[in-house]
Amino acid sequence: MDKTVNQKAWFLVAPVFLVVAFSAVLPLMTVVNYSMQDTFGNNQFFWNGVGWFKELLDPSTDLGGRFLASLGRNLFFSLVILAIEVPLGIVVALSMPRQGWTVAACLVILALPLLIPWNVVGTIWQIFGRPDIGLLGYVLNAIGIDYNYVSNDIDAWVTVIVMDVWHWTSLVALLCYAGLKSIPEAYYQAAQIDGASRWAVFNAIQLPKMNRVLLIAVLLRFMDSFMIYTEPFVVTGGGPGNSTTFVSIELVKIALGQFDLGKAAALSLVYNLIILIVCWIFYTVMTNAGAERKVQAESEPAVDFKASAGLKPVPALKPKEGVA
């Protein structure tokens, strides 16, 4: 389906452009402005050129050391939670009940952690993990594991990771479930006739069909875990020491804690740039996958029709209900 060229479409896009420009471009200009200056208070600013950026990328300075350390921790954190959440999410999606009221019940419970305010997620785990009043901390200590996320680095890390798995695995699972639901029943029947094994069905039918949603899942999870702030802040406050201080926590410390505007702004820009690059890769891969799907769809139109019909199942079901 080719789109028509119509420059008047800009009128339809203008409101979005204005709203987002107001909330994105203006503040970004402020950040760029600050990043080049130094201040000694009293609203007096001095030109500092690229000084802050030099310091930021040099691990021997205080600022650079803190930035690079938190960046390393954040990357490690993102990789660990992806390695756990993606396979677990797939398994959970494959375990979804097929029909009946249990489907709705499972969906609602799965979605529940996603709608809890982030600081409350932190509060829940803060309470749950405490050795004195929390079930998890109490049970672990009772069976002889010395667990205390306030004083032990490893325990703090484990708590933050388990919390993120608890909070976000559902997103991966729901995305995969949406992907699985779009597979026509005929595929499975064909596989059954061929005598395909369980693993072959997963490898040849389910995994390829989940490709696209898995891509969305991985990239959304990467982005969001890369800018995680509230949950670890509530649970560990970035501690013990600096062991769970991620980039956003470091940034807020510098910007709103020390009011070091220049350093914070420089950090913001570099941080934003990293995210922008990853986002660009995401966008390119997504649009390429879309183009591939289009080519594939043209070669087997019947399948694509079914997949897109899965989006609006209600009209397709109606005649059946009328007959019954």
Binding site: V20, S23, Y271
Partner: peptide, 23 residues
Amino acid sequence: LFFWLLSNRMAPAAVYALPFFNL
């Protein structure tokens, strides 16, 4: 434009906290 919009979805809130306060 679409990419620019999308990139804003990914921007960390911490970056914008202070400028928003000023704005």
